[in-house]
């Protein structure tokens, strides 16, 4: 990173510390992280990259389909928020669910899971290496618990939804403390 850019970032950070979050309900991550980039397997079984979103804004969430409560609750809130958006905005926004549990989440399993939430939600997963590269790029992690006797296991993962704009630049982190109305307000503002 070159010096002027570093200086700008530090200045932005100080400004942020001085006057708080510029009115977003979520957390603005503009300039903090690199643009979206990945190579994963989609719910259709094809290998895809970030180009699969064709220059549309994306709301992305990391989870696993066997997730008992957090994932379904978060995805349900996201989908409910999207339904509150004006029609053209709804059409533009792409939803993505990245499973960090590739062992149990094959393409078919992913397709059934994401379709249950929204037809605009794309299921993605990949090898451990591909997933680690992506989660690490966004400074998040995941891990597996010991297997129980019935073979099931818990997966720890990020609790936030990452929102990228049409240029695939990271813009917002929607924390799991946000309600449907707050998510909808942030998304509407971002998509304008």
């Amino acid at each position: 990173m070159n010096l002027p850019r570093l200086g700008l970032m530090l200045a932005a950070l100080l400004a942020l510390a001085a006057c708080g979050e510029e009115g977003w309900h979520g957390k603005s991550i503009e300039g903090l992280m690199p643009e979206l980039e990945f190579r994963l397997t989609s719910e259709t079984g094809e290998t895809v990259t970030e180009q699969v979103f064709e220059g549309r804004p994306v709301a992305m969430y990391f989870g696993f389909t066997h997730c008992p409560d957090i994932c379904p609750a978060t995805l349900a809130r996201l989908v409910a928020a999207v339904r509150r958006l004006p029609e053209p905005q709804q059409e533009r926004l792409q939803l993505a669910f990245v499973s960090v549990d590739p062992e149990r989440d094959g393409p078919e399993q992913l397709r059934d899971y994401t379709d249950a939430f929204s037809e605009r939600m794309l299921g993605l997963t990949g090898t451990q290496k591909q997933l680690k590269t992506l989660t690490r790029r966004y400074r998040t992690t995941y891990g597996y618990e010991e297997r129980r006797e019935d073979g099931s296991y818990e997966v720890s993962h990020s609790s936030a939804i990452f929102v990228f704009d049409a240029d695939l630049e990271p813009r917002l982190m929607l924390l799991d403390s946000l309600g449907v109305a707050e998510i909808a307000a942030d998304l509407e503002r971002l998509l304008q």
């Binding site: 400074r139 891990g143 720890s156 609790s159």
Partner: peptide, 12 residues
């Protein structure tokens, strides 16, 4: 320090 929940903890 919510960031540790947001990013996932190293172990539960």
């Amino acid at each position: 320090f919510e960031v540790y929940a947001v990013c996932g903890r190293a172990w539960p």
